[in-house]
Design a protein around this nucleic acid. Structure first.
Lengths: 207, 207, 207, 207
DNA sequence: GATGAATGAGGGTTCATTCAT
DNA sequence: TATGAATGAACCCTCATTCAT
């Protein structure tokens, strides 16, 4: 897979500076969210942490929610990338192998910055947009649905999408709980997740 | 078991009035939470909805959080009752039968007022007290742990408690998602939950 | 001086009960004030501490301020009694001897319940009535003024009253500060007070 | 002494605006305190009087108490300046001359805005921080203590500090009372204060 | 574009006082 | 008379968002 950014025309200095500011703000937002949780997450704190004025923050993000959304979108993008990478490896065969890939991607993603993802989970629910709201979350879901399709022959597209969404939610729940309890034993967690998902999928109504 | 309340002396008028007010406030709180979600849940709204002054609210609940906690406690109590009833039925044998009982209790509980329980989930996370904070949540967990113990011989108490907590979380997640999607098909949901839990528990490390 | 209460007709039981309730409330108020200071002094706390309903409290005291006023009045009454006793001893001669009597009475009064008197000082100032508001404070002041008159021949009545009021204020200030610092060395404090007052009075304009 | 402000670089517009707002708020706070006393002193009133929003007030003062503290700090600073100026005049010799200087500084300070200083006294007591809480009050006290040291040879540092604190309290009390009574006759008041302090200091235990 | 001062609605909580029982 | 539930005005403080410079 070629690096698409290589073909994007060089930004003008102003544009590059903009881009850097956006990144700075997002990273600051992430850190504030990690450190203070949803309750302590406010635009002033983010701007201060980013070393930028609130005004600038609002230049790039129309609202606080937009900031959260972008944070969450990026997380999903990382998940998407991991998932695509995992699926590109070779032809996967068994359900378990496929699930293992999904699960690994999810664990990798959520444990990279566990506090952040947990906090985002909570904020997303609060604000009322689930991760499928932005395209990326939807693409993740679709990818999983496609993956599941191979092992659930005859399932309707809606069913597959629901199964994919549920699987992801379940995985996130379990990972969140594990993260809460302390350092992760990735392998054991992976096994539990795979087992759980196999059980879940096995109980879906067959057409 | 005779009805003990029959022997409790009639409350004095004043006390009865208090009790009624408390109930009114709690019901109002539940409705506000259902209608407006965690974001729109504020003490003024609750008091207004209850047709009561804020002062009265604070006479019975020392803080907004205490109100949420009580709401959640009551929910957990309902769950506990359902669970105890289910377990008292007769001698349960298989893991699946036991899980089915747990799952039924959970579904019954969470679908009685689905919006409310969902909102409570979110508030609990936000405020940082999980349902185990009050005794009831803990008792639910303990009960489930005990139930699982019979089917996971040799598991350490800590493991059992974690398994119980995870099971409950997973169940709630799935039920929440189902509720979001619309009216529930209780039987199909139940099957999926049981399957999922069997899968999860089967993947736990054996001693 | 005859005991006037001896001639007050025996109270009916109801009246006695009333009187007791009043005393209970006042003592509770004093204790709350001592324990929580002006900031924590509120009618509900007083009623609770007295084991009485707020309603009852308002039966006997028309307002919170009335309660404080009565507390302060009683303190002043104690001071008055001490002062009268001191003056009745015999014919006082020198200024210093007279001042010593005043000062002793003041110390005795304010150190009997130091926290209480300090808190009252603060509340009185806040509420805006000085202790001369009720008759007793005035009588204390008048008594002191009369005492000073003997040593400030030719001073106008107004001057005497001002001197008396100032003397009392100064004494209270110094005693308060001493109380703040910890246990009192009554004798040393007394000396300082007397010295201070002599200095003060000596500097008054002579007619 | 040249005017140092002449050399301070012009503030940027934004900073100047801030500074002005701060001053506006402080002046409004002073006026509210003078007009309404401690009881009527609330942040909304201050903001309204300053023609500013509450938000602005809280941008510059983290709490209501911080506002009071700053007001009191500024008063103490004025007192400190007056005191230092008075002491720098020349080599003071007698106790009386030194006291006269202290007393003049105190009178000048407290009669500049008498209502304000009175109200501050009360609030400080209520809130529980005496003026020594901020450095300035302490420096005033230290300065007085040093001044007294020359006339109380052999006194321990603690004794000197107590004497300084007491002297200041006594002075403030007497000035407050004088202010209450109406327009001040500065010279007569000064004499009374000096006399009182000499009396007080003369009665301190000699080592 | 950038800044950060300013805004003000909103929300949690307290407490003196009233009044139906 | 006693009770204590109920009231609601007041108050402190926060924070998303705007806008003059």
């Amino acid at each position: 897979m070629t690096d698409q950014t290589a073909f994007i025309p060089r930004k003008s200095p102003a544009q590059r500076r903009s881009r850097e500011t956006v990144e700075t703000i997002l990273e600051a937002a992430a850190r504030v969210l990690e450190a203070a949780g949803p309750a302590g997450f406010n635009t002033n704190a983010v701007a201060a942490r980013a070393g930028v004025s609130v005004g600038s923050l609002y230049q790039y993000f129309p609202s606080k929610n937009a900031l959260v959304a972008e944070l969450s979108r990026r997380g999903a993008e990382a998940m998407l990338a991991a998932l695509e990478a995992a699926m590109a490896e070779d032809g996967a065969r068994t359900l378990e192998q496929d699930l293992r890939r999904i699960v690994r991607a999810a664990i990798g993603w959520q444990t990279a910055r566990p506090q952040l993802e947990r906090a985002l989970d909570q904020m997303e629910e609060r604000v009322g947009f689930d991760s499928a709201a932005h395209g990326v979350g939807l693409r993740v879901q679709t990818l999983i649905a496609r993956l599941l399709a191979a092992h659930l022959p005859g399932a309707a597209p809606d069913q597959l999408n629901e199964a994919a969404a549920d699987s992801l939610s379940l995985a996130r729940t379990l990972i969140d709980r594990a993260v809460e309890r302390g350092p992760i034993e990735a392998r054991a967690l992976e096994d539990r997740l795979v087992g759980m998902l196999i059980g879940y999928l096995g109980a879906l109504p067959r057409p």
